[in-house]
Every structure is written in C-alpha cells, then in structure tokens.
C-alpha cells in the first residue's frame, strides 16, 4: 500500500470541507435570519423573493457538507467519536434538535402557499442558535474543558459557561454568519438586478462589518488567555491573518463603493479562508488539545487509503454535479432574475 502521510491528507480534506460548510451554512443561516427580520420590519416584499430563490434548491446540499465532515472525521480519526461523542452528549443533542427543526420547518414552510410567520421564526432563530452551538465544538477543541478521569471523559460545563473565550467564539460565529450572508445576498441581489433588495442587503452588510472586525480581534486576545501555546503558534502565521484582514478591507471597500459585488464576495471568502486555515494550521497537531493528536490518532493505514481513494472518486463525481447545480441556480441569469416559470 502506498506510504502516504494520511494524517495530513485527512485533516486537509476535512478542514477544507469544514471551510466549505462554514461558507455555505453561514449564507444559509444568515439568510434565514434576515428573512424573518424582514418579515418583522415590513421589508419582506422587497427581499424575501431573492432569499427564497437562492435557498430553495441548495439547503439540502448545505446539510450534506456538515454530515460529510462528521462522518469523515470519525473515519479518519476514530478517537474523536470517543472523546467528543462522550463529552458532547448534551450540547450535541441540542445542536441536532435545532438543525432538525430548522431543516424541517424550512421544507414545511416552502411547501405551503401561505408561509407562516411562526415557522419563519423557527427557521430564522435557529439560524443564529445553530452556529452558536456548533462553535462550542471548536471552543472545546482548544482544551481545558474536557478531562479524562477514572470514570471516563467528562465535560466541565461550568468552566465552559464562565469562559470568556467560549463566549467570544460564540459571538464570532453569530456575527460571521450575518456578515457573510449579507455579503452574499448583496451580490445575489445585484445579479438579480433587484436594486432595492441590493441596497437593503448592502446596508446590513456594512452594519455587520464593524462588529466583525472587533470580534476577530477579541478572538485573538481571548485565545491568548485560554491557550497560550496555540496563540504563540498562530503568531508564526501572522501573514495569513494579515491577508485575511486585507481581504476584508477590500471587500468592505468594494461593497461600500458599490463596485464589483462578485469580487467583493470572493474577498469575503478569502478573508474567511486565510483566517480559518491560519487558525487550523497553527492548531496542529491537535484536533482536541491535548487528547487527540493527528499523528497518534489517525485511523489504520488500510482504512485511510480506502477513504482517500473514495474521496478522490467521490470528488470526481460531485464536482461536475455541483457545477451543474451552480450553473442552473446561481449563475443562470434568467433563473436568478426570476424570468422563467418556476417548477414549484
């Protein structure tokens, strides 16, 4: 069997999928929230059409990114099932219930001719609660909240609840969702040539960009408090975080000046990518500090080889299919503008 560095292959693949999930899920979660917010503030007529048109065909795909990530991580690093599975029983169950409510009520609402406000509320609010609850996993992975004791693995809930690092990351997740989502919707509305919706989304984006800058700095400061080792390692990759900041400033500038929204959204994606990979690389070799180290907890070689092959074959199948989906619903001018008859 080929002698490859499977622990690095695995984490690169998984981190990339997690990045993909962060982007598509942020768009989706934020859109759900904005949809409800618009309903409450009487801007529904203006923006909901755009939101619905994007969300309808892609929400299921978003969910699969998430499933892919957790199935993949258990496959490549089975120890995660043990440590995180044991310690996350309650937080994980809460996240699952929220995800279920959100997914189902979205489908229920879009299948009736008269959408209900209460269902839109469930869909919108869960859009903020889910990233908050999922971000807890990243918080826990920094170590200091889980201990392996005689009776097994235990999560120290009190330490988590009173941790400034935990709360910073939770707020970072929520703000990130609103920031990315409004950035995307600005672009999507401008593509749809819907000027008034574009103006609304643009305002939302500009409003959320300031908290975005502030909370990112806070994240660094609190990481320094919480896990100094990781903070120091992150400093070695200062240029990645610098590029992230530059990308963000370009994105804000472009959207503020109403120039090239497409490029602006690419800049937002780059901003997240640089920060996300910078965080990930500096965190290595730990998945869960200090219990899961990718070098020692990687799955056996024959399984790693099989998973890698399946992954490559799977991508060869999925990329053209995803391309088709994007071409039909996101890059198709007539669909986006709503010129043609909808099936349903």
């Amino acid at each position: 069997m080929m002698d490859l560095n499977y622990e690095m292959i695995g984490i690169t693949v998984l981190w990339t999928f997690l990045y993909g999930y962060v982007i598509v899920a942020a768009i989706d979660f934020g859109a759900g929230f904005f949809n409800y917010y618009a309903m409450e503030t009487g801007q529904h007529q203006k923006v909901s059409h755009i939101i619905q048109r994007y969300l309808s065909p892609v929400w299921e795909t978003t969910n699969v990114f998430f499933v892919f990530f957790f199935v993949g991580i258990v496959g490549f690093y089975p120890d995660t099932a043990y440590y995180l599975g044991t310690s996350l029983l309650i937080p994980g169950s809460i996240a699952l219930i929220l995800l279920s409510i959100r997914g189902s009520y979205y489908a229920f609402n879009s299948s009736t001719t008269k959408p209900r406000k209460s269902w839109a509320f469930l869909y919108g609010v869960t859009g903020l609660l889910i990233p908050a609850s999922l971000s807890i996993v990243l918080v826990i992975s920094e170590g200091g909240y889980i201990y392996e004791e005689a009776g097994g693995v235990q999560l120290h809930l009190q330490e988590l609840l009173f941790s400034s690092y935990a709360w910073t990351i939770v707020f970072l997740a929520i703000i990130l969702v609103l920031y990315v989502s409004s950035g995307f919707l600005t672009y999507y509305a401008s593509k749809a040539k819907n000027k008034s919706a574009m103006e609304t989304f643009r305002n939302w984006f500009l409003i959320w960009s300031l908290p975005m800058i502030v909370i990112s700095q806070f994240a660094f400061l609190s990481l320094r408090e919480h896990n100094y080792e990781h903070f120091q390692a992150a400093q070695d990759y200062w240029y990645l975080f610098g590029l992230s900041l530059v990308s963000m400033l370009i994105a804000i500038f472009l959207i503020w000046k109403k120039r090239n929204f497409g490029l602006a959204f690419i800049m937002i994606m780059l901003q997240i990518a640089f920060a996300f990979y910078g965080y990930g690389i500096s965190k290595l070799p730990y998945i869960l500090y200090p219990y899961i180290d990718i070098n020692t907890s990687v799955v056996n070689e024959s399984m790693a080889f099989a998973l890698t092959i399946v992954f490559i074959l799977g991508l060869l199948l999925l990329i053209p299919s995803l391309y088709l989906l994007l071409r039909l619903f996101i890059f198709d001018k007539d669909y986006v503008e709503g010129k043609e008859e909808e099936g349903y």
Binding site: V67, V71, V74
Partner: peptide, 8 residues
C-alpha cells in the same frame, strides 16, 4: 468507516 463515508 468506508461505507459510512460512501453513503454520504
């Protein structure tokens, strides 16, 4: 893990 992964 393989068939689980393939199922996704």
């Amino acid at each position: 893990a393989l068939p689980l992964f393939m199922e996704v």
